[in-house]
Each structure stands twice: as structure tokens, then as C-alpha cells.
């Protein structure tokens, strides 16, 4: 079952992972962007990890607290989209103490749709949304945390590999569509690395 404690543990793991990932993601972003993805995520995830969710008995409220922490810590597109996803999951679980692992796939699919609407990108543009879409699909029917971790990790890595050699179609990087071929989208890379950290 997914409970507020699950979210507490996940943010702690993600926070630990950022110690190593911060500069790596800054460098990945600097190739075609402004080089701040790692610093931004470290701050956002740090804000989430500082929350105490241990007394929370409403899973929706726990997701909402994470969304507020993200919104308080950044106005960047990636950070704001993360908050959009967390808000979507907060709505889906409002008033319930827990969710089944099999609920995760539809919750992520709804989060993906909310992010598409808010951000204006499309699937296939080579953004974090393509990674999330792959994971939402891969988790369909998955019922245990171990299986969810393994499937999510494989799907996020596969999406990263598939899109690496495709051009970016949105944002500033679309101007360098040719240069973006062979290069990971920093948001997609961050997503895959964080999924791997959570699944480990």
C-alpha cells in the first residue's frame, strides 16, 4: 500500500540521491539550456524532504503538502510541472489513508494529462512527459512495490534511450533540433535518475 509514510521515505531517498545528481543534471541542462535543472531540483526536493508527513493520515493531504512545497520553492517549468502532477495525485487520493500499488498507473496517467494541459507540450516532444507516460503505461496491472520499482525503472530508462536520438520539439531546445539529437533531455534524465533512486 502507498501511505503518507511511503511518500516520506521516497522524498528522503530522492533527497539523498540529489547530493550526487545535482551537478550532473546542471551539466546536462547546460548543453542546450541554462544549467540550473540540478540546483532547482535539489532545492525543490529538499523542501519536500523537510516536511514531516509521519502524523498525516490522509494520503491526498500528504500529496498536497508535497505539491505546496514544490510551488514554494520554484517557479521553473519542470518544478511547476512536478507540483501539477502532485496536485493531480492529491485530488485522486483525497480523503483516503492509502492507495493500492495498482492505483499508481492510473494516477500517473492523470498526472501526465494535467501536466500536458498546464505546460502546453505534447507527447513525443522529448520532455519529462514522455518518461512519465512510459512509466504510467508500464505500471498497468502492477501490484507490488518491488514490481513497480523494477517496471518503472526499466520503462524510464527505455524512454530515455528511445528519445535520445530524436530531436527536441518544444522550448528553446527545439531551435537546435539537430544539436538535441544524441543528447538526453535534462527533465527526462532527471526523472529516470530519480525513478532509479526510488526503485533501488
Amino acid at each position: 500500500m502507498i501511505t503518507p509514510q511511503t511518500l516520506q521515505d521516497a522524498t528522503a531517498r530522492a533527497h539523498d540521491a540529489m547530493a550526487v545528481l545535482e551537478q550532473e543534471l546542471n551539466q546536462a541542462d547546460a548543453v542546450l539550456g541554462d544549467g540550473d535543472t540540478g540546483g532547482m531540483l535539489a532545492r525543490v526536493i529538499g523542501g519536500m524532504a523537510a516536511l514531516d508527513l509521519s502524523q498525516e493520515d490522509d494520503l491526498g493531504a500528504a500529496f498536497a503538502a508535497l505539491a505546496r512545497a514544490a510551488l514554494a520553492n520554484t517557479g521553473s517549468s519542470l518544478g511547476t510541472l512536478m507540483a501539477t502532477a502532485l496536485t493531480s495525485m492529491a485530488k485522486a487520493t483525497k480523503g483516503t489513508p492509502s492507495a493500492e500499488w495498482s492505483d499508481l498507473s492510473p494516477m500517473l496517467a492523470d498526472a501526465r494529462d494535467a501536466m500536458l494541459k498546464r505546460g502546453g507540450a505534447s507527447l513525443g516532444d522529448k520532455t519529462v512527459l514522455d518518461g512519465l507516460d512510459a512509466v504510467a503505461t508500464a505500471l498497468n496491472g502492477v501490484e507490488t512495490p518491488a514490481a513497480a520499482g523494477a517496471q518503472a525503472r526499466a520503462a524510464a530508462d527505455q524512454a530515455l534511450a528511445t528519445f535520445r536520438d530524436l530531436p527536441c520539439k518544444v522550448g528553446r531546445a527545439r531551435m537546435f533540433a539537430d544539436k538535441s539529437i544524441g543528447i538526453d533531455d535534462p527533465g527526462m534524465l532527471a526523472f529516470a535518475k530519480l525513478v532509479a533512486a526510488l526503485a533501488a
Binding site: 532547482m40 510551488l71 517557479g75 521553473s76
Partner: peptide, 10 residues
């Protein structure tokens, strides 16, 4: 906002 990041919603 922060350096090179948009301002937050609040």
C-alpha cells in the same frame, strides 16, 4: 524567482 527560474505562484 531564483536565478534563471521563473517566480513561484505565490
Amino acid at each position: 524567482g531564483n536565478v534563471f527560474e521563473g517566480p513561484n505562484v505565490q
